[in-house]
Each structure stands twice: as structure tokens, then as C-alpha cells.
Amino acid sequence: MSSIHNDDPNPNQEPTHEADVPPDPIFVIHRAAMREMDEPRDGAEPTPVSYILLCFAALMWGGWYIGTYAGTWSADGLAERATAGAAITAPAQNPMELGKEVFGVCVQCHQENGRGVPENYPPLAGSEYVLGDKRKLAALVLRGLGGDVTVAGKHFNSQMPAWDNRDDEEIAAVLTYIRNSWGNKADPLSKEFVAAVRKETEGKGEWRPASLDAFAATPPPAAPVAAPPTAATPQAQTK
């Protein structure tokens, strides 16, 4: 072991070999404390003025940020800028694109390819519910479905939640999307149509296959499509 190996280079006490422990008893007892350097001291290099200026620039940025993004300084001032509201009204989207996006919430069960999961979740591709009566389809998706259903020749007995927390435009878009994907082809739904079905089924709980069929068999109230858009429910108005 050479003396260059120097944790705390103190040439005075550095022994040159492990065996060469000097006889001085004090040294033997306290060698680690003896070989170390002095307690640290402060140097006095000045701080460059340019660096101080940079720190001030940072502070000014901070001031600007607080001034710009602090909202209204109140408990319900949630938007960081008064104008943020304008930025978040989403531009109108083509229904198929919006529908694909909304379909993100259905994927969990019906799968991306619309084929569902055997025994658990029915397929949407080639489903008579999807391609059939629009009013029935909208009612089913808005209010949920449970019980023993037959889809494309297979039985399913499970439950689907109601999707009435989505607004009319989104429901119309997702239904249009599932009616026109994976080989499905059928006409689109309008958001006024969905609004009318929503109004008509107000207060109805989850469908059973039988009650849904019964509903589909009753004629719709007069001129549902002509229902004014203001007929939207409170949920729709929250948007």
C-alpha cells in the first residue's frame, strides 16, 4: 500500500505499509482522526454580477407568471386565466372522429375491434341491436341494459351501465361510429334525435330485453325529430 492512497492526504502521518504501524500509542488509537484535514472553511470568491442579474431575471419571470396565471385569487377562481374559457370550447368535430374518441369508454368491455368478449360482453360488430332500430339503440345505451340478451346468435347475461352522463352530441357520435365501423353500415344519428329519446325515456331505469322490446314497439310521441334542441336535459346543459 503506497502513501498516495489518500482519503485525507496528510503526509505527516501517512504510514507506508500496513505492517508499519508506528509504535506511538496515541497514533494507533486515533489514526483516523489524526490523518484528516482541518474542519472546512469558507472561501471568499465574489459572486459574478452577471449571475446576480440572472437571478433577478428569474425573479421577474416569477412575478410575471404569478401576475398572468393566478386567476381571480379566490376559492372558486379555478381557471388560471380569465380567458381560459374561450380556449377550452372544443372546435366542432366530425361525428366519426368524436365517436371514436367517446368509444374509448366502451372499449373496456366491447373491445377495440367491436367483437366483445365471449360469454361476458356482446359484440357490436354485426349486432342486430346496433344495426336495427335507432330509437331502441339510443334508449338502450342511454339507460343501460341487463338480463339475458341474444346478440348475433349468442346469449349474454350481464349488465351494462347507463350512459346518460354523456351529452347528446357524444351519444349521437358514438352510436354513429358503432353503426359504421368493423363492417357495420347504417345511417347516422343526430343529436336532436338522441335528445328526444332521452326526454322520452326520462326516469326509466335499466332496460331488460323484454321491456326494451316493448318500448321499441310503442310508437314514438309525435314528431320526435322535430323536438327543439332546448329539450335537452340538465345533464346536457352542464356542458
Binding site: 377550452i88 372544443a90 367517446v102 374509448g104 369508454v105 352522463n165 356542458k239
Partner: peptide, 15 residues
């Protein structure tokens, strides 16, 4: 909020 992340578009809430 809408426009910040995709929480609402994923259906995790309506607002």
C-alpha cells in the same frame, strides 16, 4: 378540466 389532459374525453366525468 376540458382541454387539460383527456379526463373528460375518457369518460371519467362530465365536468
Amino acid at each position: 378540466m376540458k382541454g387539460y389532459g383527456a379526463d373528460i374525453r375518457r369518460g371519467w366525468g362530465t365536468r
